[in-house]
Write a protein that binds this DNA or RNA. Structure first.
Lengths: 244, 244
DNA sequence: CGTTCTTTTGACTTCAATCAATGAGAGTGG
DNA sequence: CCACTCTCATTGATTGAAGTCAAAAGAACG
């Protein structure tokens, strides 16, 4: 059965135990499909929402603006993610969620999700866990932005995208799609566009990766991880799924 | 009734609706009191835990180390916080939780908490919400570290501490205890110690605040907020507590 | 009181931001 | 099909913010 929400199931299975009962419940969930052009918002800072969205294809990102207009990209969201799952309990969103690439999303009504979670408390734990993994990624990003060199930061971002996309089967050999512009990368890593460009050139010239036209190819995973000081533990893929 | 966990109730009430039924359930929760000297860890990076801790007095912080030894302080936790609440569903912790000030904490066994949440699904929502507010703070920190000037970052930290401490009644006039060293502030804001020192001097000399011997006094809240571009919305105090 | 931790200062260096152009490609309309 | 416009990537020159190094001065603590 090839249904739109399958990628969500893959994602959930990658971070926890997904019982057949839960799969069935999720497949019963009503959703509305929406297409987004690049740059178009799915949720705006300050808005109060009563639905969340699951990424079906494409790539979304969250960003937050300072009062003076500067923006920080907080995270990227490949298919399978529910970037605004926290809106279930924090209905006023405090970031902008936008399409980084032309994307297709599915809108899930809070009411439907609450009903589903009420009937399946174990699924509540899995969704909660998903928001916690989200949070764990922020910890690592914060550490990288605060402490790592520009080169390490940039390398780390590519490492993370590689591992996360692999978890949902979106890696083709050693290459994957990542259409973020250099301005996006700069906003994500807290550096200027010019510096992002030069940092990328550094990574390319040392033969760690290729990146052009929105396609990344990892050329030396080993050295890339070393440079990035990358340890995928923080993504909590298939580690303790203990539960009670 | 003046019980050790009262400060936890105050904290929970500040971010959501705390029913009498929930208060009673929390007061029935068994816990073990532990005292921590400054610097002593309550949880270590990589450890698998089966309890979490509620801060009763003092101040804890979370920090994460890069492979090369650099550390980033991720958050500070005044009384009422459960800094490692996420361990309920992410049992392998990926940060170190340590006492920033000599502190007293209460250890809560996961098993007891799971049992309590099973009996009170609405309380599950409130605890979930707490972890989401935690996460929302990371978003803002990340934005500040990535985009703001050193002065704005530092000012923002003091603004946040003020508002959070006020929510649990730990502000004395315009002053509050905050015994972090300048090395801690530097590690929290992603800057060098020397620069943290100079940034603090800047804040003092412009008459925005006083800070010495672990006591902060806000001298000009208005201007401090402006400089920090501080907007407390991200702390989600008493905003939408909608639920289903 | 000596030891250790923390704060502060000055001098110097470097990483990264800013400013200012120039290319390179993709899409549009005449 | 070719100008025209956009956006995005790239480069060089310059400036500036923040890091590093080193040392001194205070505080805190047995």
């Amino acid at each position: 059965m090839n249904q739109p929400l399958d990628v969500l199931l893959t994602k959930l299975a990658s971070i926890g135990r997904l019982l057949p009962e839960y799969e069935a419940a999720i497949h019963r969930l009503p959703f509305r499909v929406v297409e987004l052009d690049r740059g178009k918002p799915a949720a705006m800072e300050g808005e109060v929402v009563n639905h969340c969205c699951v990424v079906l294809t494409g790539l979304l990102h969250r960003q937050k603006h300072m009062l003076d207009g500067n923006r920080q990209i907080l995270s990227f969201h490949p298919p399978g993610d529910i970037p605004d799952l926290q809106s279930l309990h924090l209905r006023k969103v405090d970031y902008t969620l936008a399409a980084n690439t032309p994307s297709v999303i599915g809108l899930l009504r809070h009411a439907d999700m609450h009903a589903m979670l009420r009937d399946h408390p174990g699924l509540t734990g899995l969704f909660w866990r998903d928001t916690l993994v989200d949070s764990a990624r922020f910890l690592t990003w914060m550490m990288m932005i605060g402490q790592a060199s520009a080169e390490a930061r940039m390398a780390h971002l590519f490492c993370e995208m590689y591992v996360r996309l692999e978890a949902v089967g979106l890696i083709d050999g050693r290459a994957f799609n990542f259409k973020a512009t250099q301005a996006d990368l700069a906003a994500a890593m807290g550096m200027s566009i010019v510096h992002a460009n030069r940092t990328l050139q550094e990574l390319r010239s040392t033969g760690l990766l290729a990146f052009s036209n929105g396609v990344v190819e990892i050329l030396d995973w080993q050295r890339l991880c070393e440079l990035a000081q990358f340890d995928s533990a923080y993504l909590h893929l298939s580690d303790d799924q203990a539960g009670t």
